[in-house]
Design a protein around this nucleic acid. Structure first.
Length: 319
DNA sequence: ATAGGGTTAG
């Protein structure tokens, strides 16, 4: 599938070549805690593991003589080496070669979660140059870079994917759909959706919830959302908790108070237990509609089921 | 083993 584009219009061109990276924020403590136990890399161990790997590469038939655990150990150490390196390029050149795409994706997610975006894009480019990418690489990278890439850059990344099975993967397309919606390219997101279907990709519930999230952000999105729901039902998919959550927010932002209530009850009937997300969206719909009595009752219901009220609830409640 | 959900002001 090729994403042709109205996105390649002149208004994006000024930004095309330089990635607009945000400054790297400070590293979060909670995420660091997970890795701190294994911070110390035993140089001796690394050396030994690397020699084993090398030996195996030279005599490719000798794989059975090298304990499997040494491979995973060496790869684990290489992953840590790259994650903790002060100079990423150097670390990649000394530790990257023995790693597979799925190992490098571990580092990719680590950088993404820590918001180390500069290094994230460096790593991604390195992986692409060596063809060490897979589906998770692309979907993850596009997700983490959703606020730091331009639509043209994302389409460029997509159109340069060589592997057709990656290109035609629904997760990868869903990541792009989400990117477009986060960047308020609603028309383009629906065009991509149509193209996915034309090219024989089967949209899944993630595709639909992503589209519905777009409907929640656009004026008059309610009728569009109803078309999306029709399409979802027609394709034989079941509504899940996230779809209902998104739908409730569409109703709230379009002042469709009764419809919100209807969906809330429907999801309960279908056996989905509403969470804070669902409650706060319905609460929001009630408040926007000026239905304070129902809002109050709903808050009582939340308390009675022992649900913690969040800031959205408080905001709605005092609207 | 990847992709998806909420509020406000300016």
């Amino acid at each position: 599938m090729e994403i042709a584009s109205s996105l390649t219009s002149h208004k994006f061109h000024h930004n095309q070549t330089c990635p607009s990276l945000k400054p790297t924020p400070s590293i979060s403590c909670t995420l660091n805690n997970g890795t701190s136990k294994v911070t110390q890399i035993d140089k001796y161990e690394v050396g030994r593991a690397y020699r084993l790997i090398k030996a195996n590469h030279i005599t490719s038939n000798s794989r059975k003589y090298v304990p499997n655990s040494s491979f995973s150990k060496a790869r684990q150490l290489a992953i840590l080496d790259i994650q903790q390196a002060s100079h990423l390029e150097l670390a990649l050149s000394r530790s990257g070669e023995i790693l597979k795409a799925q190992d490098l994706n571990v580092v990719l997610r680590n950088f993404g979660n820590l918001n180390r975006l500069k290094e994230l894009s460096q790593l991604f480019n390195w992986m692409e140059q060596r063809g060490k990418t897979n589906i998770a690489t692309y979907s993850g990278y596009i997700k983490f870079m959703r606020s730091s890439l331009t639509p043209v850059q994302v389409l460029d990344i997509y159109n340069n994917i060589r592997d057709e099975s990656v290109k035609n993967n629904v997760s990868v397309c869903n990541a792009i759909l989400d990117f477009l919606i986060k960047n308020r390219k609603f028309d383009n997101s629906f065009k991509l959706f149509d193209q996915m279907k034309r090219d024989g990709l089967i949209p899944d519930t993630v595709t639909y919830s992503t589209l519905l999230a777009g409907c929640a952000k656009v004026k008059g999105g309610y009728s569009k959302a109803m078309q999306v729901v029709q399409d979802l039902k027609y394709s034989g998919l079941r509504m899940d908790g996230v779809i209902y959550g998104t739908l409730l927010s569409v109703c709230a932002s379009n002042h469709e108070c009764e419809e919100a209530e209807r969906y809330f009850n429907q999801m309960k009937c279908e056996g989905h237990t509403p969470n804070v997300f669902h409650y706060s969206s319905l609460l929001n719909a009630y408040s926007v509609g000026g239905n304070y009595k129902k809002a109050e009752e709903l808050v009582q219901e939340m308390k009675s089921v022992g649900m913690e009220l969040n800031k959205v609830c408080y905001f709605s409640h005092f609207l």
